[in-house]
């Protein structure tokens, strides 16, 4: 997904001479080509995120389209006030591209995990939040971000993401609107976000093999949230599940539950999310997913036990 982002950015920069890339000293094996092709529009700001974000805002004031890249917690939290005051409050369309969603940096430990970023970023007024579910969504949403007049956050996974879209479904993708990536007209639905979308599809496949049909939606845009289409899906669903590699509070579960409550839709929403506590377990993402029952087997087992209308 990171590679898809880098490739898309390269293509966009080719056409748009105002596109700049700032990095907080990260991007090894990702941005070498951008740096070589556009040396004057690339800046390694060093390990100094506050200044990087402030500079991005200043450059946006000069009409530049600035992408700022780092590992999610460093990108968002060190300079959160710069994001709030310099970008959101001033409505400057800087694009924050964070890498390493959820537990992507598994063994690196909790300092590198991004388990509350959706909550933090969707809380900021004037901020748009995207969490692409596969490399095709990452490319599409990166392109779309150019049309925004306010700042946005693009929550990227790292590498090795499965593609869940087809040429047709990605062509039909509407920014803002959840994209159906698996299943037919099932009355059971899984909403998944970002890096959990491929795992949700695998979960649905396992469930299907055991006779339970679930459709899977990628909620690639958390903000603005297309409440109308989500309410429509909720109304016609018997079982509703959310899957996210993020805390349930202020993540996908909260978003979907909010739409249900606002629209008086009675639904038990089966949330699969990370606990409300930082992980101190040492392990790969796969190991941690199994531990927190976010792997396809655990998810399928949980949802298989849910009775329709129950």
């Amino acid at each position: 997904m990171r590679a898809a982002f880098a490739k898309t950015l390269l293509g966009l920069a080719e056409k748009n001479p105002d596109i700049f890339l700032l990095t907080g000293d990260l991007g090894f094996s990702v941005f070498e080509e951008f740096k070589a092709r556009f040396p004057l529009r690339y800046l390694n700001c060093g390990v100094a995120e506050q200044n990087m974000l402030g500079m991005a805002a200043g450059m946006a004031l000069e009409g530049k389209t600035v992408f700022v890249y780092s590992i999610i917690p460093f990108l968002l939290y060190r300079g959160l006030e710069q994001i709030r005051n310099d970008m959101c409050y001033q409505r400057l369309p800087v694009k924050l591209a964070g890498v390493g969603s959820g537990l992507a940096y598994g063994t690196a430990g909790g300092s590198h995990h991004a388990v509350e970023d959706i909550g933090v970023m969707t809380s900021l007024p004037d901020m748009a939040v995207f969490a692409p579910g596969d490399p095709l969504e990452a490319a599409r949403l990166t392109e779309f971000s150019l049309s925004l007049e306010t700042p946005c956050y693009i929550r990227l996974n790292k590498a090795g993401d499965a593609v869940v879209h087809t040429t047709e479904t990605i062509a039909a993708l509407e920014p803002g609107k959840p994209a159906k990536v698996f299943g037919g007209a099932s009355r059971n639905v899984i909403f998944a976000v970002g890096n959990m979308v491929p795992e949700a599809v695998e979960t649905a496949k396992l469930l299907k093999s055991r006779g339970r049909e679930f459709s899977v939606y990628s909620v690639h845009t958390l903000k603005p949230l297309d409440e109308e289409s989500i309410a429509g899906i909720l109304r016609s669903s018997a079982v509703v599940a959310t899957i996210e590699e993020h805390a349930a509070r202020n993540g996908l579960f909260s978003a979907i539950a909010g739409v249900a409550a606002k629209n008086c839709i009675r639904a038990a929403i089966y949330a699969s999310a990370l606990p409300d506590s930082y992980s101190h377990e040492v392990g790969s993402r796969q190991y941690l997913r199994r531990l927190y029952r976010l792997d396809r087997d655990s998810l399928a087992e949980k949802l298989y036990a849910v009775k329709e209308g129950g």
């Binding site: 200044n51 402030g54 500079m55 004031l61 710069q82």
Partner: peptide, 25 residues
């Protein structure tokens, strides 16, 4: 007003961003 401020430590990075963009152009 060129840039909104109020919390300290924001104006110089913003100014550096403007200065950098101008240099590039």
């Amino acid at each position: 007003v060129a840039a909104s401020t109020g919390s300290l430590g924001h104006g110089i990075p913003i100014g550096a961003g403007i200065a950098f963009a101008r240099k590039r152009d």
